[in-house]
Amino acid sequence: MTDANALDEAALAPYLEEHVPGFRGLKAIRKFNSGQSNPTYLLEAASGRYVLRAKPPGELLKSAHQVDREFRVMTALRKTAVPVPEMLHLASEDSPIGRMFYVMAFVDGRIFWDPALPELASNEERAAVSDAMNRVLAALHDVNVEAAGLSDFGKPGSYFERQLSRWTSQYRASETEKLPDMDRLIEWLEKHLVADDGLVSLVHGDYRLDNMIFAADRAEVAAVLDWELSTLGHPYADIAYQCMQWRLPHKSGFRGLAGIDRKALGLPTEEEYIVTYCQRRGIDGIDNWVFYLAFSFFRLAAICQGVYKRALDGNASNPEKARTYGEAVKLLSGLAARLIDEGR
C-alpha cells in the first residue's frame, strides 16, 4: 500500500507482539474498503486473525474519529446482552503508525450489505434477521449505563438540542457549497426542536444492517460494529436513524428499501418494526416521529459532507467513493425537505 492510510508493517509487528495478548508472527495487513471514517484493517498473523481500527491521517474535525471511545464502549458492552467483539489493545497517538488505534478480535460470520437480503432463501429467514436487529437495538437501549461503567459517556438530557448544535457546526465547518434544502432543514429542526422528555440511554449512532456481523448458520447478531458515534443520548435517535435509512432509494449508494415491496420479502413495514421495538421496551409508542426522522436525515447529510470534504482534502479512508458523497448530501436534504413538507 502506498496511500496515506498505509501501515508500516515492520514497525507495527514488534509493537503488536509486545502489547496484544498472544499475538505473534504478523504475516499480512489488508485494509477493508468499506467504511468512510476510521480506516480498518485485517491483520493476519501466525496466532490468528485480528482487526485494527485507527484514526485517519491528516487534520481532523474536533471531536471526530475518537477510536478510544469505541474501544471503551465495546469493552463495557462485553458484559451485557449486546454482542460486540473482544477488545485487545488501545494504542495512543505516539504509536508506531503515528496515530491512535485499537486492536480487537476478528469475528467470523456474515455481513449483509443489502437490506432487501437477496442472498437469503426465504421470507422466514429475512424476517428473522430483521427481528434480530430489532431485538439487539432494544437490548442496547435497555443497558444499565451505570452498571456498565458508562454513566459519564455523554451528557444526559437535551440530546437533540446538543446534537443539532454539534452537527450544524460540523456541517458548516466542512461546507463546500450552499444547499438551500440543508439550510431550510436546519431552520426547521431548530424551530421544531422537541422538548427534553428525560429519556436517556446508550445509543449507537449508526445502527444499520451492514454494521453488524451475523452468525454463519443462524439469524443471530454475532457482533455490532462501528461505535464511533455512540454516546449517552435519546433512544429514539437510533430507531429513527435505522428507519430513515430504509426510506432511501434502493438503487442509491445507501441501499435503502424505498420502492421495495417489503411484505413480498417478509420484511416488516416501518410501523411494524416500531411497534415490535416498543413492545420489547415496554413503551406505548413514539410521538414526534417526523422530527426524529428529519433529524436523522440531517445528521447523515452532515456526516456525508464531512466525508466529502475529507476527500477533497486528500485524507478520506476510501477517496474514490468519498467523492460521491457530495451528491448524497443533496439527496438526503431533498428527501428531508419533502418529509417536513408532507409531514409523514
Score class of each variant (00 low, 15 high):
residue 80 T to W: 06
residue 80 T to S: 14
residue 81 A to H: 07
residue 81 A to G: 03
residue 82 V to G: 06
residue 82 V to S: 06
residue 84 V to T: 10
residue 85 P to T: 09
residue 85 P to I: 08
residue 85 P to K: 08
residue 86 E to N: 05
residue 86 E to F: 03
residue 86 E to V: 12
residue 87 M to P: 04
residue 88 L to E: 06
residue 92 S to R: 14
residue 93 E to W: 10
residue 95 S to M: 14
residue 98 G to S: 07
residue 99 R to Y: 12
residue 100 M to I: 10
residue 100 M to L: 12
residue 100 M to G: 14
residue 101 F to E: 13
residue 102 Y to W: 10
residue 102 Y to P: 11
residue 103 V to I: 13
residue 103 V to R: 08
residue 104 M to D: 12
residue 106 F to P: 09
residue 108 D to A: 15
residue 108 D to N: 12
residue 108 D to P: 02
residue 109 G to A: 04
residue 109 G to S: 04
residue 110 R to N: 15
residue 111 I to N: 10
residue 113 W to A: 09
residue 113 W to M: 13
residue 113 W to F: 14
residue 113 W to Q: 09
residue 114 D to W: 05
residue 115 P to V: 12
residue 115 P to E: 06
residue 115 P to R: 08
residue 116 A to S: 15
residue 117 L to D: 05
residue 117 L to Y: 02
residue 117 L to H: 08
residue 118 P to E: 05
residue 120 L to E: 06
residue 120 L to N: 10
residue 120 L to H: 03
residue 121 A to E: 14
residue 121 A to F: 00
residue 123 N to C: 07
residue 124 E to I: 00
residue 125 E to P: 00
residue 126 R to C: 06
residue 127 A to T: 07
residue 129 V to Q: 07
residue 130 S to G: 09
residue 131 D to Q: 13
residue 131 D to A: 15
residue 131 D to Y: 08
residue 132 A to N: 05
residue 133 M to L: 14
residue 133 M to Y: 00
residue 133 M to R: 06
residue 135 R to M: 04
residue 137 L to M: 15
residue 138 A to Q: 02
residue 140 L to N: 02
residue 140 L to G: 03
residue 142 D to I: 01
residue 143 V to R: 11
residue 143 V to C: 06
residue 144 N to H: 12
residue 147 A to V: 05
residue 148 A to H: 12
residue 149 G to M: 04
residue 150 L to A: 00
residue 151 S to F: 02
residue 151 S to M: 08
residue 151 S to Y: 00
residue 152 D to F: 03
residue 153 F to P: 03
residue 153 F to Q: 01
residue 153 F to S: 06
residue 154 G to C: 07
residue 156 P to N: 00
residue 156 P to E: 05
residue 156 P to V: 03
residue 157 G to A: 05
residue 158 S to A: 15
residue 159 Y to R: 10
residue 161 E to Q: 15
residue 162 R to G: 15
residue 163 Q to M: 13
residue 163 Q to P: 08
residue 164 L to V: 08
residue 164 L to A: 08
residue 164 L to N: 09
residue 165 S to R: 15
residue 167 W to I: 00
residue 169 S to F: 00
residue 169 S to P: 00
residue 172 R to H: 09
residue 173 A to P: 01
residue 174 S to R: 11
residue 175 E to N: 09
residue 175 E to P: 02
residue 176 T to F: 12
residue 177 E to A: 11
residue 179 L to I: 15
residue 180 P to C: 02
residue 181 D to F: 00
residue 183 D to H: 02
residue 184 R to N: 11
residue 184 R to D: 14
residue 186 I to F: 00
residue 188 W to H: 07
residue 191 K to Q: 14
residue 191 K to A: 15
residue 192 H to D: 14
residue 193 L to S: 04
residue 193 L to C: 11
residue 195 A to H: 11
residue 195 A to V: 05
residue 197 D to A: 02
residue 197 D to Y: 05
residue 197 D to S: 05
residue 197 D to R: 10
residue 198 G to A: 00
residue 200 V to G: 00
residue 201 S to H: 00
residue 202 L to A: 04
residue 202 L to R: 04
residue 204 H to K: 01
residue 205 G to V: 06
residue 207 Y to V: 04
residue 208 R to W: 13
residue 209 L to Q: 11
residue 211 N to V: 05
